[in-house]
Amino acid sequence: MSSLFAGLFKGRQDGLPGPVKAHLTLKKRLDLRRPVQNADFVAFDTELTGLDFKKDSIISIGAVKLKGSRIFPGRSFATLVRPESPLQGKSVVVHEITHADLTGAAALEDALVDFIAFIGDAVLIGHFVFIDLNFINRAMKRLFGFKLQNPALDTSTLHDWLYENDSAFAKHHKGMTLKQDLYSLAQKYGITVEAAHDAQYDAYLTAQLFQRFLHFLPGCGIQATEELLMIGKS
């Protein structure tokens, strides 16, 4: 981070919670040359009151850790968030979270601090991750003055890329799928889909999708984490 940037936020940084302060220097620590199989990942998902990031807000965050393609169900994260915008009937049907459920939920700021502490320096994995990042980053900027520093990777982009670049992948998984949503993909790749729409469970589904895709990377010449991250950028 440039000293100019650090200077700008100096005043605010002093008052930041520990994990958030540590988070600011993440990019200095990050070693993206590590082989993908040894890299730390966190698959995550958020649930929202709606998709308009100007009006809607986060109501839950779920996440699970991975080391390479290994998922650690015992190292997972889930929190409900007190929404800053009203719950809408439409989305309540989807995530089944009601007002009553949210009475004891954490304040957004506390939830974010816990989330930042949980993810550490891991590379983030999400399905259509930009949506979740938009919401988290808007809150982050407002509350702490900066965005999430972790690199992030989108499983739907990774899926498309593998399809175009790896015939072994296309062959193994027989045929293209039209629907790109998490559940359709999960079903296509033989992932058991049980509970409905809970952020942690969706993060777990995302982790499993990522896990399946990772096995095809060495065949595509991808070994280092930075090479993997290039996929999201192309």
Binding site: S69, R70, I71, F72, R75, Q208, Q211, R212, H215
Partner: peptide, 14 residues
């Protein structure tokens, strides 16, 4: 014990 248990996926034939 469960903290350190991970899940790995092996495609057919691996």
């Amino acid at each position: 014990f469960v903290q350190d248990i991970s899940l790995e996926y092996y495609p057919q034939g691996s």
